[in-house]
Design a protein around this nucleic acid. Structure first.
Lengths: 257, 257
DNA sequence: TGGCCATAAACCGTATACAGTTTGGCGATA
DNA sequence: TATCGCCAAACTGTATACGGTTTATGGCCA
């Protein structure tokens, strides 16, 4: 009876999370399957661990370049290494981890060049997203975006959460573009980028946000007639040096600089 | 001695592939570790299985929508399910497989909409690649590209290999762009696309290739002054219907059509 | 005292074993 | 004859066990 009750916590009809292993299980100290399993928790440990680790990496709990010990994580979570391995494997494909054969997983450390390469792509893709979003804009979406911009302009909380707001605003534009594929690529591109930004030079930047630069993007998607590429360039230049380095903007004569 | 010899095939200093499991191993019939392990084979089974399965999916051995039975594959390869699971997990992240929780992996079946969404992105990204490649072109790369175009124009072999040539030509341009990130995204985007094209409507298309359309792209990256976006649009229109559907080309007045 | 080699511990890659869920098929009933 | 419910086989998710490699530590020698 006590065993059966565990799987039915909350009375949901979802598949029971695995409570017992092949033979034995430690009955001491908390278990990930009891603690963290809230509402939208996926039913497999692999997915749960993956999301948990991703959040921890993005929040700065694990630093870029740091080694990820799968045995240690498995012990900490009181589960076997298999789900942890698979979660790490997924995170590797997402670009957050880098695998060194037979040596383990390491949190991806982006070089300056790689940051510029990613941003050069963002330039092109976000500009495209802005063009699409502008053409498909609805009052509801515009209201959401405006709300986010005003939240940022009036922000007075911890800086980490401001970064989340920033991401939320951009992600909303990506979604409004109406091309799920474009949205996926942009998310995948910027995830590792934000893992770095969560740690470094966030303090200097908050001031610049107030300079209505997100509002410039908002005006564009609201129907403004500026050039999305130049707007994105200006936007990225606030946080990074020469973000257009590996884009065609650097090689064509389009820049007045 | 016979055991030791297996790991040292070719006399390379690479780590020995695993020959024995925890306790026992079947000594009958061929083993993947003996058969397919050629030169550049990665040292882990997971990577090897991943590449093997990817090649089989891309070659049409597994059809879109088909279920992938991990136990069956493990038995066929005479290995345990663990490396197979991890390989499948990686392929899922690459977009070639879709996981249905507790029901298994299925070869991703792209809908018409998804194909259009991917192509709309290709339009933007390949155009950017062409602009970059044009600016960074070297005689050596140009020679390679020209050679590929001529191979395609004079092609008289099986159609499947012609598709590979097509991919090779585009991939060469992506690489010539000099932004590894852009290259990675384009590879990832088109991989699942080519898995479909390997099966359908390849016969009609071979004729159109001879119409020098790849040469049009070649001329562009060689220094021609046309618009890369329009060139890519024309190129994609040969194989797909309305590839610009989810791109900004569809919503701006740029199209004369 | 510093560098090199050997030994040992930790850890990754893989194999086998088991629990719960899904699924296909069979029989009973309307 | 068609539909619903039950049962068994197969399969996925996870746990534990083991072999080999990498790495860190300590002793030895220059």
């Amino acid at each position: 009876m006590e065993e059966a009750a565990i799987g039915q916590t909350g009375g949901r009809a979802s598949p029971k999370p695995y409570r017992e292993g092949a033979r034995a299980i430690r009955d001491v100290d908390v278990d990930i399957r009891e603690s963290g399993l809230g509402e939208g928790t996926p039913s497999t440990l692999r997915t749960h661990v993956m999301k948990e680790l991703r959040a921890q990496i993005l929040s700065g709990r694990y630093r870029p370049g740091e080694r990820i010990n799968e045995s240690k994580i498995a012990r900490e979570l009181n589960i076997s290494r298999i789900p942890v391995r698979e979660a790490l494997s997924q995170l590797q494909e997402q670009g957050l981890l880098t695998s060194h054969e037979r040596r383990g997983m390491f949190v991806t450390k982006l070089s300056d060049d790689e940051v510029q390469q990613i941003n050069s792509l963002r330039l092109v893709l976000e500009a495209e997203a802005i063009r699409l979003a502008r053409a498909r804009m609805t009052p509801a979406i515009l209201a959401d975006l405006t709300d986010l911009v005003e939240q940022m302009e009036n922000w007075d909380g911890p800086l980490i959460d401001a970064v989340a707001l920033d991401r939320k605003f951009h992600a909303a534009i990506w979604r409004a573009a109406g091309n799920p594929c474009l949205e996926r690529v942009l998310i995948s591109l910027t995830t590792s980028l934000f893992a770095h930004r969560a740690l470094e030079h966030v303090s200097m930047e908050i001031r610049r946000w107030r300079l209505n630069h997100h509002r410039a993007l908002l005006n564009l998607v609201a129907g403004g007639d500026g050039d999305p590429v130049l707007a994105m360039l200006e936007h990225l230049r606030m946080g990074y040096t020469e973000p257009e380095r590996y884009s065609s903007l650097a090689v064509t004569g389009a820049l007045s600089t």
